[in-house]
Amino acid sequence: MSAIQNLSDASSREAIVSIARLNKSFGSFHVLKDVDLEVGRGEVLVVIGASGSGKSTLIRCVNGLEMYQSGRLTVDGFHMPTQADREIGGDRELAEIRRGLGMVFQQFNLFPHMSATDNVAIAPIRVRGRRPDEAKAIALRLLDRVGLREHAHKFPGQLSGGQQQRVAIARSLAMEPRIMLFDEPTSALDPEMVGEVLDVMRELAREGMTMMIVTHEMGFAREVADRVVYIDQGRILEIGTPAEIFDRPSQERTRTFLSRVLRH
């Protein structure tokens, strides 16, 4: 879907992720400051910013890997617990919320003691209670979708970085998530393997998956994103369509950042 089309649908789009006045600190380091953001269903949101700006922390808060201190974070109809809530318990609720969320990590985090097929199948078996043969069929189908059918029996140690990341995407898709989160999915890859992963992500976007992506790949962002968010020192400095952000940034700092990143 092109960006222009999105604009007309935007107002009727239901917010699947709603972040209101979110604050997060690591000890005394205040890393996210009063963040307000909404992500619509089916929207592809790309988050850009310098390292240390808090963009990874933001996306990790969405799926509960980081705990936030104050504000409201609602994901797909569920209210995410704050740090205070988490200290009491509530792990079971969190596990349930996470079934509808998929997360792809910069370091892939594949389970090294399982084959690619098992990596993809384990969650449907354990979490959704599917039968092993059913789950295996699902796994093979998904691996085929990301182009790795012939490598299904291999272990992560035998796969390249790009292949591992694609397995990781298939693994998340096996849980049929409604939202997919990507934390710098191609930053740990050799340049020649970035393309194969971006292809898979492009395909997902085309099929209407709601995606929040933290990335440095500006070309990809321009092509696929419905909106781009620029985070600077823990605050959302600018948000808009790719055309608005990349071609006509209104903030000085956005311009500086883009000029540094887009130079090479």
Binding site: S11, R13, E14, A15, T74, D85, G90, E93
Partner: peptide
């Protein structure tokens, strides 16, 4: 945008 309905961790469970 419309804001979807929210569910909390039930106070009794807390």
């Amino acid at each position: 945008m419309q804001i979807a309905e929210t569910h909390h961790i039930a106070p009794t469970r807390r």
